[in-house]
Amino acid sequence: MSETTTGRVPVTITVNGQPCTREIEPRLLLVEFLRRELGLTGTHIGCDTSFCGACTVILDGDAVKSCTLLAVQADGSEVITVEGLEGEEGLHPLQQAFSEHHGLQCGYCTPGMLMSSLALLAENPDPGIEEIRKRLGGNVCRCTGYQNIIRAVQAAARALREE
């Protein structure tokens, strides 16, 4: 990237394994890059104030809030969104478990819940309830009361361990 830029800047972000290059305004948020530039609307904008976690994606291995990052900050990085979960064999074990254990009602928070859970299980394949609660603390659900979400994460952890 040039040292000083005034207008649009080029960025390349690898999203779900696909390198994507766009010329963007530096103030474009990562979540808007995903939704508007790439049409990946699975990542939701909830509170837009870094609170609710609906916009959570994986950036270079970490769960992050994409409403609180500029797309230029992710230049050269790898991003995984909820669209990247499903494989050729169907739903990801986390998606399957959320479905089976009623880990969602309206579904608005679900992409963020899934991505935070994905980061957690990558780090700890067998988390206890307390750790799951802690790691999902930055993801707000207004429907479920969280109990089924926690059950779903535990079930997904079991399924992934047996894979």
Partner: peptide, 21 residues
């Protein structure tokens, strides 16, 4: 919500960053 427009710089070294600031 968007930040107001700004110019974006990504200096490679601390010295460059200080000089730029």
């Amino acid at each position: 919500m968007y930040p107001a427009p700004f110019r974006y710089h990504r200096p490679a070294t601390l010295e460059d960053a200080m000089a730029l600031l």
